[in-house]
Structure formats: structure tokens, C-alpha cells
Design a protein around this nucleic acid. Structure first.
Lengths: 248, 248
DNA sequence: CGGGGACTGTGACGGTCGTTACAGACCGCC
DNA sequence: GGCGGTCTGTAACGACCGTCACAGTCCCCG
């Protein structure tokens, strides 16, 4: 269970926002990127836009205090949205992946109070909010998808509140694992392999539980055969057994 | 500290969505309702719309399982948005008051997974999502305000995640009290009176802490003079002292 | 092939929470 | 005025968590 990638923690702040694509292209980007499963189409439109930024693992898309009102449309990769508490603990609000948008909170408040960090090598297109707004105003389907997408994000946030309202570590962990399986899972025999690497520390930050307790809880699940590790350190989970778990 | 209103827990399900106002009127409603502090203007537009629904304390604006895609524009009152866990505990995701919108999650998912309940007598106008969407598509300022509003809601949700990521009851309580003071506060001498009645149970549901612990924590704050009760059972709080509290 | 760094596993200790169980306070209604 | 219901205050107990401390493991890089 070791990280597979290199670490480049403090690299690659984003350049000034892009500016010159045709508006129609941005419209396609918005419409395409906001649907959950538009991978192929998204790649096309992003390639046409010609300016995907590359963020290595650990790079920040934006940081606390950033004043740019920029949206990021993720072409490929995984991004965590979160914050560091005054006490120094990191909190992960949400994970976003291919096809999702990141940075929408700048609509409500600048400078930013949260940050977005690539958990794996990520390609994303940065678009200033003004441009996004223009597109939404002119393009009904894009607006429709955007509203659905943002409400999806809100529903996820309330799901996180649900998660944190239970005090049972195993229940929290199992919900996080189920979500990871649903979002990043790939069938592997009877189990589902989570196709991305998360450290126990990161899982702990999603569950607001100490890393040590996550270690223990994962091992309890392993003893029961509900969780295994693959060679790459990826998690293999038995979703069915995991979902049935809280009822015991 | 006793509830001042009558209880009418299971009353007043909402009627079928409204349908006949002029679209321009709905546009004004959307634009007006979504700004945080548009009380006067909002009353005007709602009155012109002519169909504010009245929800007594405890009535549900909508419930889990509801399939109507309806937005509610709150003219006056307080609404809690939340859920009951399988274990039977209630979780309060958010509070919404005059000028806010409720029910936006139906854009992402029907039937609904959450519910909205009036915490005080509430007047609200129900508008089907289709109509709201039409307005947003045609009315730039309304769209602008709507996006800001929804991102505000999202930021609040992540604030709730922050809140629940600390395990210190006093810190959680103080953050909830500060928020209540900011949203419902009215200056009263050196202190701020929270102009609405919340039971300890409700505060507990916002903090995901047991009611008993809230009782103790409130009394600890009272001993220090940071919190007092007014005659109506309303809370009086010393925001400054409370904000300074976690640093001790 | 060896050393360093990041990640994981495990134990012990102290603190805090949820639960359960009551008692007291206050209100509204009959 | 009494009764029932709701809300608040308190205590005791057991369970669980965070923290600290450290050992073990694996990979990468030199």
C-alpha cells in the first residue's frame, strides 16, 4: 500500500485564465463537462479548446485566498476540494473527477475559502466565470445541465453531513468506500476495484476520523473478507456485503 | 424555556403547484426572493403573485419521497431542511428564512431524499421548477442571483461539514450559535438576541451532538456570561466572547 | 544494495460522548 | 386547579475515539 506516483506538492499554480476560444466552443465544454458520463465528448470539446492545463499529483488548481473567479472543467483526473482547519487538520469536502466542474464556489465568495488539489495527475480547462455565465445565459441545455450538476454537488455535500452525523467509524468508512466504489470502481471478479489510490490519511480526511482508526477499521473489514488490497495498493471491496453491514 | 407556539406536527401538506401567474411576475419573484435581503420587494412581488401558502409551525413544505419538482420562495418564516436517519435521529442540514429559496434539490433528484419543515409559522410561494427554469433562461439578473444563492447554500453546506469535523462539543455549539446570531440576531444591549425559538433538541440536530451535551454546554456558557435566556426563552449571546472562545 | 521517506499496523491512556434514567419546570387545556 | 405533554437539567456507566509512541513494510533513488 504505497503511493504509486511521485510527489510534487507545491508545484504548478495555475496560469492566468484562458481567454480566446470561440464562445461556441466554451458552450460545448460547459454542456459536455457537466454531464456525469460524457467522457468521450468531453475530450473532443476540450481538445478543440486547446488549452487543458496539466496538474501533477499534489498540485493545486486553486488555493485558499485565491481571488480569481475561475471554473475548472476536469478532462481527466481526480481533484479533492477541501480545507485546512485552524488546528491544522485537513478536511476533504468532496472529490471531483472526469467530466465534473471544480471551483464553482467562487460565484458566491472571493477570495476563496477552500482549495482544490489534484489527487492524481489531472488535466483541466480553466474558464473565467464571466464566460461560463455568458454561455449559461444563451444556452438552455448547458444551463439545464449546470443546474443539475450543481444540485448534485449540493446533494453530495448534504450526504457528507449525513455521514459525519453518525459517530460510528465503521459506518462512516463503509459509506465512504461505497461512494468510492460507485465513482471509481471497476468490476474485478466478484469484487469492485477502486481504480485510484487513496492513502488511509485521505480516507480519514473524508470521514473526519483519525488515520489510526481507519487503519483498524479497514483491517476489521479485511478479516471479514469485505475488503482486500490489490497489488497496486488499490482497494477491492465487496459492495454488497458492505452495504448490508450497518444492519447487523 | 418552553416552546411558544402550538404544535401541529402532521398538518398542511402542500397543494398542487401553482400555475397561472404571469411569467413576468414569477421572474420578479425569483429575482427578488433570491437576494438575501429583499424583504420589502419580495413581499410586493409575492402579494402580486397572490398565492403565498401558509405553513404553521411543524408543517412540512415537502417530505421525503415527494415527487413534485417544486421550489418554495419564503416570504416570511423559518424552514429547516433535513432528514431522519435510519436510526431515527433527525439531522438538520440547513435553515432557510425570509428571502431564501427551498426545495432546489429536486433539480437533481426525485423523489426527494430530504424534507423541509417550518420551524415557525411560514409563508411561502410554490413555483414548479419548469417555471423557474424558464425565468432563469430569459432573465439574466435572476440567473445571476440564483447562481449566487445556490453557491451560498453550497458554501453553507461545506460549513456544516467543517462544523461536524471537529469533535469538540463547545466549538460546535459556539459555531452554531454564532450562525444563529448572524442570521436571526437582533441587538439587545451589549448582547444579541436570537429572534426565534430553538429547542435544545433542534440545536442538537444542527450540531450532531446529544441534547444532554447541548444542555450542559449551554449552561457552561451561561456560567461564563456568554449566553443568557430572555423571557421568551430566546437566547441572548455575546458574539464577541463566543467568537473568541475557541482560542483559549 | 542500502538508506530514507512515506505509508501502514498496533498498543496504551485519558478524555469525552451517547445512553439510560430521572427529576424539575413550565404551559395549555380541560 | 390539576393533568399531560414538552422541554430542560443532572448523574452514572460503558464504549469509543484521539493522541502519542513506535515498529514494520514497501518503494524509490542513489
Amino acid at each position: 500500500m504505497i503511493a504509486e506516483g511521485h510527489r510534487t506538492p507545491f508545484a504548478n499554480r495555475l496560469p492566468a485564465a484562458l481567454s480566446n476560444e470561440a464562445s461556441a466552443s466554451v458552450a460545448a465544454l460547459v454542456a459536455g463537462a457537466l454531464a456525469a458520463n460524457f467522457r468521450g465528448k468531453l475530450c473532443d470539446t476540450v481538445l478543440r479548446d486547446g488549452a487543458p492545463l496539466h496538474f501533477p499529483k499534489g498540485a493545486r488548481l486553486y488555493d485558499v485566498g485565491d481571488e480569481r473567479r475561475t471554473f475548472f472543467f476536469i478532462r481527466h483526473g481526480i481533484v479533492k476540494v477541501g480545507r485546512i482547519t485552524p488546528e491544522g487538520h485537513e478536511i476533504i469536502y468532496d472529490l471531483r473527477k472526469d467530466g465534473a466542474v471544480v471551483g464553482e464556489l467562487c460565484v458566491h465568495e472571493t477570495p476563496r475559502r477552500e482549495r482544490a488539489v489534484a489527487l492524481a495527475a489531472t488535466q483541466a480547462v480553466a474558464v473565467p466565470y464571466d464566460r461560463v455565465f455568458e454561455v449559461l445565459q444563451r444556452n438552455g441545455p448547458a444551463l439545464q445541465q449546470f443546474l443539475e450538476s450543481i444540485c448534485q454537488v449540493l446533494a453530495d455535500a448534504y450526504g457528507q453531513v449525513d455521514l459525519l452525523s453518525t459517530r460510528d467509524t465503521l459506518a462512516r468508512l463503509s459509506r465512504v468506500l461505497l461512494r468510492l466504489a460507485a465513482e471509481f470502481g471497476r468490476p474485478a471478479g466478484d469484487l469492485i476495484e477502486i481504480d485510484a489510490y487513496f492513502t488511509q490519511e485521505e480516507i480519514a480526511q473524508m470521514t473526519a476520523v483519525s488515520r489510526e482508526k481507519i487503519s483498524r477499521a479497514l483491517n476489521r473489514l479485511r478479516e471479514r473478507g469485505i475488503v482486500r488490497y490489490s497489488r497496486g495498493g488499490h482497494l477491492l471491496i465487496d459492495s454488497r456485503a458492505l452495504a448490508a453491514l450497518p444492519c447487523e
